[in-house]
Design a protein around this nucleic acid. Sequence first.
DNA 1: GTTAATCTTGACGATGATGTCAAGAATGAA
DNA 2: TTCATTCTTGACATCATCGTCAAGATTAAC
Lengths: 192, 192
Amino acid sequence: MAGVRQFDEDEVVATALDVFWRKGLHDATMQDLAAATGVQRGSLYNAYGDKEAIFLRAFDRYAEQFLEAAGNALAQGDAASGLKSFFDMIIVNMTDGSPPRGCLTTRTALDAAISSTDVQQRVQGVLARLEQLIGKAINRAPGKRSVADANRLARVIVTFTRGLAVMERAGYSRKQLRESATTFIEAVVGNA
Amino acid sequence: MAGVRQFDEDEVVATALDVFWRKGLHDATMQDLAAATGVQRGSLYNAYGDKEAIFLRAFDRYAEQFLEAAGNALAQGDAASGLKSFFDMIIVNMTDGSPPRGCLTTRTALDAAISSTDVQQRVQGVLARLEQLIGKAINRAPGKRSVADANRLARVIVTFTRGLAVMERAGYSRKQLRESATTFIEAVVGNA
DNA sequence: GTTAATCTTGACGATGATGTCAAGAATGAA
DNA sequence: TTCATTCTTGACATCATCGTCAAGATTAAC
């Protein structure tokens, strides 16, 4: 062990996450990553192999953060107010930054036609875990809903969050997204 | 007028649409278009200027087809069964082909960070027109819904369709998408 | 302090995409 | 038939990115 790594790996991954979030897996280049991290392209190749390997690390970090935040939001109050917090959280998450960064998972899902199996699995993993979190949260509701119904509903909610991410990319404002989310919650959870 | 165009423009645009639908605006290259249409790259540049100009023509064609099909589906039966037909239509639309092509509008929306204002406006145009079609369709329902409520609901439905498109990219099957759509319709339209 | 392993750096070649252009082919119009 | 215009073709220059590598720098371990 000599000739020691000159950069902080955690810092590089965090910075890489920022780059990927703003540009997307496909459009972010190794030069972008090198410039943002201050680490030479050659060193990044040496340390990680290729761009996708860096992305996977960055995405894992993102997924942990995101799912933890989602779980916390969903746990607030009863099922309905948990959902409201959750939607607030993800809308802020995707409209943050200038210009807004959007949703990394959604963007990656649409890049995924080109991406590797690894990347696709990460995306599926996040969506599946999110679905479980939501399922658990709405099962707290006192309604006479069956577990199977709750699971289906959880998937509908996940799907709707993906829709919000697309609408954000299409140019809808934070306020507009919030309005849609509110309408959605009222329509779906207010009843049922 | 001499030295006459050697190819059928309608045919070229139709073929280009197929290429863009499968590969996306960003990933489809002029070489792809040349190969698929049988028209040399130079001729395409001469005739249209650049890739985006071809895309805009192809996308306009797509938008007309799509919105007409959406309008027809929504007009079937009462509001609820119109919605059901509509969701059937878009799910087939995005899962068709092997591998499935996905939704061109959604894919373009997510490419749009890189795209021109023109492209972004087309995407917004399709979503806005779709929202109007849906709004009209659900206003037929005999419920005591206000027009403002119907408009908000229409946007929620558009948003959900975008979510389905993302889920398709993430690997969900036609059957799974249908199940979510059914659950969504029941939850949102069954009540309200 | 010497050694050996590892990291860093900058340059290199390969690839694939873009947009342009000159020369030649084709054809409507006179 | 001739002309003028437009289209077609293939080659060209440019650019950005990728991935690799040899030479040098650095440092842990002995």
